[in-house]
Computed example of a mutant assay.
Amino acid sequence: MMLRWLAGNGSCKNGACPTLWGTENGDYVVQGYVITDRHRLAELNLPDGESAVVIPAAVLEGYFRAQG
């Protein structure tokens, strides 16, 4: 899967900052902070094989502003 940077902290030096990526299929990959709080995870009721991450609103807002 080829990824292209769409939005995030462009000055991030180590690549470990929340980021929105696009794929060649037109899908999105979100890189963010893993949710580890048991109560939040229970609310999500995730099936096996799925995970959840937190991505700052500014990352998505920056992407949508650039699209507008």
Rank of each mutant, 00 (worst) to 15 (best):
G68R: 07
L46W: 03
D27G: 11
L44N: 02
A7F: 08
G8C: 04
C12E: 06
Y33K: 15
G68E: 13
G32R: 03
R4F: 15
G10T: 12
A42W: 05
F64T: 15
P56L: 13
G22R: 12
L41K: 02
I35G: 01
R38Y: 01
V53C: 02
G26R: 13
P47N: 00
W5V: 10
M2W: 07
V34N: 06
L41F: 01
D48S: 03
R65A: 15
G62T: 12
M2H: 08
L41V: 06
D37T: 00
A66M: 03
G8M: 01
A52G: 07
T23Y: 14
V29T: 08
G49V: 04
I55Y: 01
A58L: 07
T19W: 00
V54W: 07
S11L: 12
L3E: 07
P56W: 06
N25L: 06
P56V: 15
V29N: 00
G62F: 09
W21H: 02
T19S: 05
N45G: 12
A58Q: 05
E24W: 06
C17Y: 05
M2G: 05
G8D: 11
R40M: 10
A57K: 05
L3D: 08
V30M: 02
I55M: 15
R38P: 15
V53S: 01
F64R: 13
T19R: 10
H39I: 10
L44K: 02
A42I: 02
N25V: 01
L3S: 03
A52P: 07
Y63I: 09
F64Q: 14
R40V: 11
V29L: 13
S51I: 11
N45E: 14
P18C: 01
T36P: 01
A52C: 10
D37Y: 04
V34I: 06
M1Y: 14
M1W: 14
S51T: 06
N14V: 02
D27M: 14
D37G: 10
K13E: 14
G10I: 09
L20M: 11
G10A: 14
V53W: 02
Q31T: 05
N14E: 04
D27H: 14
G22I: 10
T36Q: 11
H39P: 00
I55Q: 08
Y28M: 09
D27W: 11
M1H: 14
S51L: 04
V54T: 12
L41T: 06
R4Y: 13
D37W: 02
